[in-house]
Design a binder for these strands. Structure first.
Lengths: 164, 164
DNA sequence: TCGGACCCTTACGTCAACGTCAGATCTGGC
DNA sequence: GCCAGATCTGACGTTGACGTAAGGGTCCGA
């Protein structure tokens, strides 16, 4: 599946000819620094299948592309903003990888119009599933905040002179 | 400070005469069930000073009031919604306890008007500090969501016929 | 070619937030 | 008074997400 080498949406390459012309690939140290995480974290993400460096040297050294870095930032975002664990994040990323693949298939001229509509609808489903959880979280937070604001207004009323 | 027995903002009582007329106090099992947490969690929260049952029997059994249950629910809310750890939650709860105390002092007739204004301003400060972190989180989530929505709209455009 | 910087795997350590188990204790109803 | 069931206090176990240290390989510029 997906035999075309090279573009695997920043997560699914395995190795690389040694003569690739190194377009801004970073060692694990620089990559970690740039993404604001530890080297250990990058290896750990790889171990869980969240992030595979776009290429590795013949000697086994990991080389990270800018796309890889972006993926790490995405992981952190999903962690801190949504509070997802790495398992749930894996699912989200799998969905996003699937969507990227769909987009490539979509633009392939051999894809029929009917297939295109099917793929597009699949994309929508995947996106909506994430949107639902995010929206739920946002609504809950909104409620929390408005509750807080109500209490703040109450306190301000006290300051302004209106009793209890 | 605050010699009137009973009302300690649901977190700061220690023991109780054995003849208290038991107004809906729950054992740890029932309390845990009602709050949707484990008994261990309740003991753990107490150990960290987050939650002290309003009374304990002479034999050392914990008795939880409805206010205690509400406090547990508050703890869970702060955990899941805001992603705070129990240490940060302790700070938030200390602030809220302080505000409750301020409210009591406020309504004491012996409190001068000037003192009242001072306390009210202190309340406002405490509330704003929490509000800031919540609002930051909300904004971040909002951004995440709108980004998601943009991508969904793009996909929907594809479905509707508009290319790329 | 060689040395220092960088990187590898393996494996054990850590921290928060509880889970779980054992053995003793308390409570309430009969 | 007595017993079943709820609860108590340790104390050790667990899980996720890494930290950290050891003992080696890799890479590349002088």
């Amino acid at each position: 599946m997906d035999a075309t080498p090279g573009r695997g949406s920043a997560g699914l390459a395995v190795s690389d000819g040694p003569s690739a012309e190194n377009g801004q690939l970073l060692g694990i140290g620089a990559a970690a620094a740039r993404a604001g995480v530890s080297e250990r974290a990058l290896r750990y993400y790889q171990q869980l299948g969240l992030l595979v460096p776009t290429c590795t040297t013949s000697g086994g050294l990991r080389r990270y592309s800018p796309d890889n870095i972006a993926r790490v930032e995405r992981i952190r975002e999903l962690q801190t903003l949504l509070g997802l664990n790495l398992d749930e994040i894996a699912t989200v990323l799998r969905n996003e990888d699937r969507m990227a693949q769909i987009r490539r298939t979509y633009h392939d001229e051999r894809t029929s119009d009917e297939e295109r509509r099917r793929l597009t609808r699949e994309c929508l489903t995947l996106q909506e599933s994430l949107r639902a959880t995010v929206e739920a979280k946002r609504a809950a937070l909104e409620g929390f905040l408005s509750d807080l604001d109500a209490r703040i207004r109450h306190t301000q009323d006290l300051l302004a002179g209106r009793d209890n």
